[in-house]
C-alpha cells in the first residue's frame, strides 16, 4: 500500500526553483533512499514533506503530497501539526543541534508521548525507557536524566531516533542521520534504524549523499540532481546496471578497498548552482555521453522495466531526431 506519494512537486524560493517536478512514492514499511550531492534539492524535499518549508522562506508552486490519500499541502497549519511528529517524524543530520540542551534527553523522548498520545508524564517515562532499551542504549534509567552534552554523538543520535519513534509514526524522514557520526558508530546507527523501522512497519525516507548507505539498507532509491530526479528504482537494479550517466558516475567515484590505483573516476565540473541551471538536461555539461539534443530539451522520464525509471535522452530514442 502506498504510504506517501509526492506528485510533480515544484518548490520556489523567490525567483529560484530548487525543486522542479519531483515525483516519487513510498510504500508502507519500505526504506527509500534519496541520494544526491549538496544542492540537489534532497533536503528541501524533506522539508516540504514535513511542512516546514515556509520556515526557510520557500513555498510550493504546484504539486501534491498525498499521505494515506490526504493532500498534506492543502492542510492548514493546525491540521498539519496533528501529522508532524505523530504520523510523520523527522531525524535531522546533526544530533548535537537537534536536541534541546536545557532538557534531559529522556524528557525529550517522553514529550512526544505526552503531546501526541496523551500519556501522563509518569507513563511516558516508563515507555521512553523501554524505547531506549530497544535502541540498545546502556543504562537507560541513568541516561534518561542526563543532558545532551553528557552523551556521545552516537548516543545522541539514538536519542533522536527514540524521539522520532516515540509517537509511533507511520513514516520517518531522516536527513543524513549518520553523516556526523564515526564509521563504526555509523554502522551501528544505520542497522538500528533499519531494524526499528522494519519490525514496526514504518516507512523510512533516508536522505543521504552516500551511495554506501543506500546500498546497505535501502529497498528502493531515487537519485536527484539539480532539483530533478534522474533515476529511480530498486536498489539492486540500480546498482547492478545504473542507467543514467550521473548515477553511474556517482557509484564509480567512491573509492572501495578493492579499487585499483588510478581507477577512481572523478566527475568533471561541479553541481550547478540553483541560480544558473543549464538548459536541457541539467547534467549535460558534465556528462560523458551527452548528445546534441541534451543541451536543448529536458529529458522525459521513461520506464525501463524492472521498476526502474530514468530521465535521460539515451533511453528515449524519439528525441534523437531533434539533433
Amino acid at each position: 500500500m502506498t504510504l506517501l506519494s509526492v506528485e510533480n512537486l515544484h518548490v520556489r524560493f523567490g525567483a529560484l526553483h530548487p525543486i522542479d517536478g519531483v515525483s516519487f512514492s513510498i510504500e508502507q514499511g519500505e526504506i527509500l533512499g534519496v541520494v544526491g550531492e549538496s544542492g540537489s534539492g534532497k533536503s528541501i524535499t524533506a522539508l516540504t514533506i514535513l511542512g516546514l518549508l515556509h520556515l526557510q522562506g520557500g513555498e510550493v508552486d504546484s504539486g501534491r503530497i498525498l499521505f494515506n490519500g490526504i493532500d498534506l499541502l492543502r492542510l492548514v497549519e493546525r491540521e498539519r501539526c496533528s501529522y508532524r511528529g505523530k504520523q510523520i517524524a523527522f531525524i535531522s543530520q546533526n544530533p548535537m543541534t537537534s536536541l534541546d540542551p536545557l532538557f534531559c534527553v529522556g524528557d525529550q523522548i517522553a514529550q512526544g508521548l505526552v503531546i501526541h498520545l496523551g500519556k501522563s508524564w509518569f507513563e511516558a517515562r516508563a515507555r521512553a525507557i523501554e524505547l531506549m532499551r530497544d535502541l540498545r542504549i546502556p543504562n537507560p534509567e541513568v541516561v534518561y536524566d542526563q543532558f545532551p552534552h553528557q552523551l556521545s554523538g552516537g548516543l545522541k543520535q539514538r536519542i533522536a531516533i527514540a524521539i522520532a519513534l516515540s509517537a509511533e509514526p507511520r513514516l520517518i524522514v531522516a536527513d543524513e542521520p549518520t553523516t556526523a557520526l564515526d564509521v563504526t558508530v555509523q554502522a551501528q546507527v544505520l542497522h538500528l534504524l533499519h531494524r526499528m523501522t522494519r519490525t514496526r512497519g514504518i516507512g523510512l525516507i533516508l536522505i543521504t549523499h552516500d551511495m554506501g548507505v543506500v546500498a546497505q539498507i535501502c529497498d528502493r532509491m531515487i537519485v536527484m540532481y539539480a532539483g530533478t530526479i534522474v533515476e529511480a528504482g530498486k536498489v539492486e537494479e540500480v546498482f547492478t546496471g545504473p542507467r543514467h550517466p550521473y548515477t553511474r558516475a556517482l557509484i564509480n567515484c567512491i573509492p572501495r578497498v578493492e579499487t585499483q590505483p588510478g581507477a577512481l573516476m572523478a566527475i568533471p565540473g561541479i553541481v550547478p548552482n540553483v541560480t544558473d541551471y543549464p538548459p536541457g538536461c541539467r547534467f549535460h555539461p558534465r556528462c560523458p555521453r551527452a548528445l546534441p539534443c541534451c543541451s536543448i530539451l529536458p529529458p522525459r522520464t521513461v520506464e525501463c522495466g524492472d521498476e526502474v525509471s530514468v530521465a535521460c535522452h539515451l533511453y528515449d530514442p524519439s528525441d534523437w531526431t531533434l539533433s
Binding site: R136, S152, G154, L155, D182, V183, T184, V185, Q186, A187, Q188, L190, H191, L192, D210, M211, G212, V213, V214, A215, Q216, I217, V235, E236, F239, T240, I251, I254, R256, V257
Partner: peptide
C-alpha cells in the same frame, strides 16, 4: 578488522547483517 567491516560498501549484494562493533570510543 571492525573498521574495515564498518565501511559501507556501495554494493547491495554485499550487505552486512549486523554492525561489526558495539559501543563507543
Amino acid at each position: 578488522l571492525a573498521l574495515m567491516e564498518s565501511a559501507l560498501i556501495p554494493d547491495p549484494r554485499r550487505r552486512r547483517p549486523t554492525a561489526p562493533l558495539a559501543g563507543d570510543v
